[in-house]
């Protein structure tokens, strides 16, 4: 007779692929930052520059928090990981809300540039990253480089 594995007691050891993926996303975010800042500067001026930098920082920190939460809790228990991801989702949305509410009346903020930067950066970086992710057993995070 076999027993079903319990997600409460199962935990995962070893490398955390989501940390690798999120660090790669942050690296690509640094590459693309000048383009987004330049576009925002064209239609919103200096306010657009600051707003887009703020928006990009929010998105990249959000990615890293999400990955860190999964990586830390997966080492403890899969059940804890599930709870942490769900409450982490709420907490991260709350933090983004707070971060925007705090600066909404600042003289240097352009809400249009900030909002568009958040959406474009988040979706754009994810779609870009999809090209480099290897969903295989041999390479769980990123595809190996050609010269490796």
């Amino acid at each position: 007779m076999t027993t079903e594995p319990s997600p409460i007691t199962t935990r995962l050891e070893g490398e955390a692929p989501e940390i690798t993926v999120s660090l790669d996303i942050i690296k690509r975010g640094a590459y693309v930052a000048p383009v987004i800042v330049a576009v925002c500067a064209v239609f919103a001026g200096l306010d657009g520059v600051f707003s887009s930098l703020y928006g990009m920082a929010l998105v990249l920190v959000n990615f890293f928090f999400a990955a860190g939460l999964v990586a830390v809790t997966a080492r403890i228990s899969l059940g804890l990981m599930m709870g942490a991801v769900l409450f982490g989702y709420l907490a991260r949305l709350g933090l983004i809300f707070l971060a925007v509410i705090l600066v909404r009346d600042a003289s240097w903020i352009s809400l249009t540039a900030l909002g568009l930067t958040i959406i474009v950066t988040h979706l754009g970086l994810l779609v870009w990253e999809m090209r480099y992710v290897a969903a295989s057993l041999a390479f769980p995070a990123l595809k190996p480089k050609k010269n490796a």
Partner: peptide
């Protein structure tokens, strides 16, 4: 798990 975690994160 590694493959599932990557897909789950994305």
């Amino acid at each position: 798990a590694g493959m599932v975690r990557t897909t789950m994160f994305l």
